[in-house]
Amino acid sequence: MTELHQAAAAGEYDQVKEILKQQKCSPNQRDIDWSYKTPLHWAAAKGHTETVRILIEHGARPCLRTEHGWTPAHFAAESGQLAVLRLLHSIHAPIDKEDFCGDKPARIAEIYGHKHCALFLKKAEAECQAYRKTAANEGITLDDTDEEWAEQGKENEENRVLQKTTLK
């Protein structure tokens, strides 16, 4: 876990700002010891809205996923962080992506009993999908895909198919 990961998790806004200003650490660095979480995942999970904002302003990608496919929106939904979810939605972050189990952030919010987050996310999902269509029609590029995670998903699927074939 880097100094930036720790500061983001603790909500140490000034420290996060200084680390980013000095470019000591990439805001998109994944921590392999913590399921490939980025500083943004930590800040979102802990509800540190202003820390989320500054990370994004410095290039943090809200589409990056953990090894289980969770985006920062999944973590915010799990811990009932409505302000973070609203912020992510306002910047057109992908809040409607499924994890490895097929669960979207709205489902995660439901599982953990965060009704206010689940209601918001259900409405926001439709808006997110509509914006994605509009952006495609107007040629607006969206940063809503984690290429590394998608590639890993392909490898995992190929391994599952290979295992099934071998077992037969």
Rank of each mutant, 00 (worst) to 15 (best):
G11A: 02
P94W: 01
P94D: 03
Q15A: 04
K104N: 01
I91F: 02
T145E: 14
N156E: 12
A77N: 06
E57D: 09
R61Y: 12
S26H: 03
Q22M: 10
T2S: 07
C101S: 15
Q29K: 10
G80M: 00
L167T: 14
V161Y: 08
S26T: 09
T51H: 08
H92A: 05
P39W: 00
A150G: 10
T145H: 12
A109D: 01
T141H: 03
A44C: 05
A118W: 02
E98I: 09
H68P: 14
H114V: 04
N156K: 11
I56Q: 06
K24V: 01
V52S: 08
A126G: 09
H114Y: 01
K46I: 08
Y131K: 05
Q152A: 15
Y13D: 07
S90I: 03
A43F: 05
L167R: 14
L85W: 02
V161S: 13
G80L: 00
G139D: 01
Q29V: 06
Q6W: 09
E98Q: 13
H89G: 03
H41V: 03
W34V: 15
T141E: 10
N28G: 04
P94M: 00
L162E: 15
G80Q: 02
A93K: 10
T165I: 13
L82G: 01
L82D: 02
A10L: 12
R30I: 02
F120W: 03
I108V: 12
T141D: 03
E50M: 08
K123C: 04
G47H: 04
E147W: 06
A8I: 07
Q29E: 12
L4H: 01
D146Y: 00
L82T: 02
Q6V: 13
G139L: 03
H116C: 08
R61I: 15
Q22G: 04
Q6I: 13
F75K: 13
E78M: 13
K115L: 13
W34M: 15
E155P: 10
A136M: 00
Y112Q: 12
G69Q: 07
H5C: 05
L82F: 07
G80W: 00
A109K: 07
I56D: 03
R53A: 10
G113Y: 01
G139Q: 00
D144E: 06
E147P: 06
C128V: 03
Y13K: 12
Q81R: 15
A124D: 08
A135W: 04
H74A: 02
L85V: 02
L162W: 14
Q6C: 09
E147S: 09
E147A: 09
I140W: 05
V16N: 01
G59N: 05
A9N: 15
S79D: 12
A109M: 02
L55F: 06
L88M: 00
R61F: 10
Y13R: 08
E3R: 15
H89R: 09
S90Y: 00
A130N: 11
A44F: 05
E78N: 13
A44I: 08
I108H: 03
Q163E: 13
L20T: 04
G47D: 07
T66A: 02
K154R: 11
Y131G: 02
E78K: 14
T141M: 06
A77L: 01
E50Q: 14
A150F: 13
I111S: 07
E12H: 14
A126M: 11
A136T: 01
